[in-house]
Design a protein around this nucleic acid. Structure first.
Lengths: 354, 354
DNA sequence: TTGTAAGCGTTATCAC
DNA sequence: GTGATAACGCTTACAA
């Protein structure tokens, strides 16, 4: 344990080994063929003796690669993100990348600032997983030839231009359709939906997919009670009053996310209603909590960890595929699926409040 | 909108402005005094025209600073972390630092790998907020003269050596003592504690602080039922049986964290017990959920966001204080405090099950 | 007030 | 097989 007084450089190693920097450099990155075994040994032992570690900064300067990526999220605290982050991080680690986490706090301007900063840092690529994406983000990426993968809840217009841009989309169709079929099969005919804030594109998508699925099963969209929530527990709680307002209240409620659903369930229980006997509730996300509450929540599962994995994988492909047909932007779907637990059951036959 | 065909360098700017690189460099970092206004203008406009942005990699190579920090956490998914991360991130952003997030998954080896990698990337400092810290972590920091701040739930031996090392400690005394006083005042005399895994130092700390506080109030430690949980909801759920096992079950339970407490409360309710009438429950953390469940959870609040803030602030101080008395390691306490909600109430007088 | 030139720690291109 | 030497893009003495 001898802390080398100053961090040694490749030159120090070369000197100690009595060879040139080039040789050390070669040994370093395993270009071992052209090197005499003996020399190799010398170099290796010198490296060990000096506890030499190459400076990735210097490397980056010449190689133009930093093995670094940026990850933009709206809010680490949002239960959607931790698993996504974990997925990204995990894949990144496995491939030798480090991840800059950037929390935009839902602020597009701040997001742009981050992207600029990341580009200046010469990250190899950027994962944009914020709940809303400004066109500026994409432009910045394209203009600077920085690879990027967008979590595109929003379909958006085609990303235009060129650039190494990938997009991954969550396909809600499958999962939500399954939920509707499930509820129809249980005899439900009167529905409500508690959405997210409707200025979020994804909120509209979820609502529309739900309504369309209902329509396909002969339910009149117009008859469906749509309540705007906030994707949080308290929003779900507050929605209950509106759900119960009609003379013939809906027997099943589909919520835009699990937190909303949980809030609704809790509020219902506090009102003395039984779930699912009096009202069935289905969420979306399948957060940890969904399976831990009682009754456990039926929900449309969104494979968050997989989203992270896939996003990082796409980025790596963009980055490492041999200068491939880079124009053909990658695009990938993530499927959702229904998880049936206890919060959904047969439709009640009787009046709610006799 | 004219995407410059190749990212321009300081040399390009110099050429276009008809000055030398040094001049551009000076203008760039606002050493504007010694520069003729006219020249300054020229440079500025050239910069704008070329959309020039300095390469932070090149800068780092000479300045030895990257304005980059690493943040080690055990698991982003653990509800403890998101706010801490947010706090760190926020402070970092405000000071122009970017944060590498590193998820050790509770794996010390992986943690060390991360630290090495971060050091090689020449991060300016590292925040170690993992639930357990290996001595190797600290050694690696010290050996490489990398600044670090450790979240030291663990007191540990003095960090020894030299180096720019700071530590921040959570002081559970205050909050837990307040909880005990609160419960005593409500008439509770029989207690249980559901701990975290006892191989975690912090689990022992919390338990011991609790038991000691009870002792100070004349309660015999030995009479306190201690159950080992897992810091998760299901652990809390499972603990209920043990809590109810004694002929004279405890009237109040202090849990090592909120998730445990929540699990316990839910299990109790499912057993037909009332909280707090039949049993009072106090948690620790004050996670979001604590105030959203019913009954809302009384808990010892741990200011997680502040932990993040303080940690990053300490690091910045370590980094930017003018070569200060660096040996005197910074050390800071974070106070906890009791938040009284609905899950704690007067001790029951009657037998639990007549 | 501004320019020249020498690094910073690597890799890459040629020679030998 | 191995070694000079020139980049990489910027900062920073030191001159002018």
């Amino acid at each position: 344990m001898k802390p080398p007084s100053k961090n040694s450089t490749i030159a120090d190693v070369a000197r100690l080994a009595g060879v040139s920097k080039s040789t050390v450099s070669r040994v370093l990155r395993g270009e071992t063929h052209y090197i005499r075994a003996e020399t190799c040994e010398k170099v290796l032992s010198s490296i060990a003796e000096l506890d030499y570690r190459p400076s990735s900064v210097a490397r980056s300067l010449v190689s133009k690669r930093t093995h670094t990526v940026g990850l933009l999220v709206s809010d680490v605290g949002n239960p959607f993100y931790p698993e996504v982050i974990h997925g990204v991080e995990d894949k990144a680690f496995a491939h030798g990348y480090q991840v800059f986490l950037c929390n935009t706090s839902y602020d597009l301007q701040r997001g742009l600032t981050f992207i600029r900063s990341l580009v200046d840092r010469q990250v190899d690529g950027i994962l944009v997983m914020t709940s809303s994406v400004s066109d500026d983000f994409v432009r910045e990426l394209v203009d600077n030839r920085t690879a990027g993968v967008l979590l595109d809840w929003k379909l958006e217009q085609t990303l235009g231009d060129a650039g190494h841009i990938g997009a991954i989309q969550v396909d809600f169709e499958n999962g939500i359709r399954a939920a509707v079929e499930h509820l129809m099969a249980l005899g439900h005919r009167r529905f409500a939906h508690v959405s997210g804030p409707l200025q979020l594109h994804t909120s509209c998508t979820r609502r529309d997919v739900f309504l369309d699925a209902l329509e396909k099963h002969g339910i009149d969209k117009e008859q469906v009670l749509v309540i705007e929530g906030n994707l949080r527990i308290d929003g779900g709680r507050r929605a209950l009053a509106e759900v119960l307002a009609p003379v013939q209240p809906p027997t099943a409620v589909f919520c835009a996310n699990d937190l909303t659903a949980i809030g609704l369930v809790w509020a219902a229980k506090e009102e003395g209603l039984r779930v699912p006997e009096d009202v069935s509730v289905v969420g979306l996300d399948d957060i940890q909590l969904a399976s831990e509450i009682s009754p456990a929540l039926s929900t449309v599962a969104m494979p968050r960890c997989k989203i992270g994995h896939m996003a990082m994988e796409m980025l790596i492909e963009l980055l490492e595929s041999p200068e491939m047909e880079s124009k053909g932007q990658l695009q990938n779907q993530i499927e959702t699926r229904l998880v049936i637990r206890q919060s959904s059951g047969p439709a009640r036959k009787t009046q709610l409040r006799p």
